[in-house]
Write a protein that binds this DNA or RNA. Sequence first.
DNA 1: TAAGATGGACAATGTCGTTGTCCATATAGT
DNA 2: ACTATATGGACAACGACATTGTCCATCTTA
Lengths: 151, 151
Amino acid sequence: MSNGFELPLRLLMAFRVLIDALHEELAAQGHSDMRPMHGFVLQAIARGADSAAALGRTLGVSKQAAGKTIETLEGLGYVTRVPDPADSRRKTVVLTDFGVDALRRSAEVFDELRSRWARELGAERLDDLEESLRQMTPGDLFRLDVPGWFG
Amino acid sequence: MSNGFELPLRLLMAFRVLIDALHEELAAQGHSDMRPMHGFVLQAIARGADSAAALGRTLGVSKQAAGKTIETLEGLGYVTRVPDPADSRRKTVVLTDFGVDALRRSAEVFDELRSRWARELGAERLDDLEESLRQMTPGDLFRLDVPGWFG
DNA sequence: TAAGATGGACAATGTCGTTGTCCATATAGT
DNA sequence: ACTATATGGACAACGACATTGTCCATCTTA
């Protein structure tokens, strides 16, 4: 098929290919409990969404849902919650060493995956592909209220 | 950031941009009840996954889940179930006129969206992008067991 | 200082997936 | 032909995960 149906499907499949490869590798490196969503959440936290309410806003979900996600991540050892001295209502979410490790390894694996693509496609074509996508998508990454969006 | 993190994110965002645009347009054309998943399911049905069990296999979910999805789609008027004369266990899932209409309009909108991208990026760059994605993803479309995969 | 906004937690609910089970019907092996 | 197995569909119980509503403590602002 050379019609418009293929483009979105290929975009989704390409995303899945990368994410699946990432998590296969992460699992082999000691992060087998990490789910696709967790990476995005850890990223969001590392970038400043360090409370349940803030995380909820960033991810586009309710603060209750964000709170539960944080609880899960805490149970897996990726984050801890520490009281905020400046605002005793808040509990600041902090990445543990394990969480930082997961993020660091994710970045490494993504870099490796990108290199693999560059080898297969040619660096120039890949750069062009990325530039095209950049041109057709909103500038701000991380307005990805993925959960539930599909249903 | 010029690191490997951006590529998967842009792929996902590009997918979302297209799907959101599609459903905005579909809603304006009388299909406001249709959710992103429904399009994929209708596609799968039209391509031959015309029973609960077959649909489940195609989508990568249980036959029970597929059955419930069909029920939902039936409630929305997109499909009906007719007994199979050749196999009295089966109930063949058939697209209604309304369902066919949704699919036809989806195809049209996707074509329009692709044309828009071609205008913005240049036809050649878009063809090249699509070809690159084709090269990096499995050949068979529709092994997209999307539901639940992300969690 | 009083009024409103905000952060976090608890509860009830809804949706949607799962597994387990059951039954009717097809299909295959002997 | 007959029996064993596989398959299609439905019902039930359960779990994951989101939602809204409510409540309270605390911060902010008028």
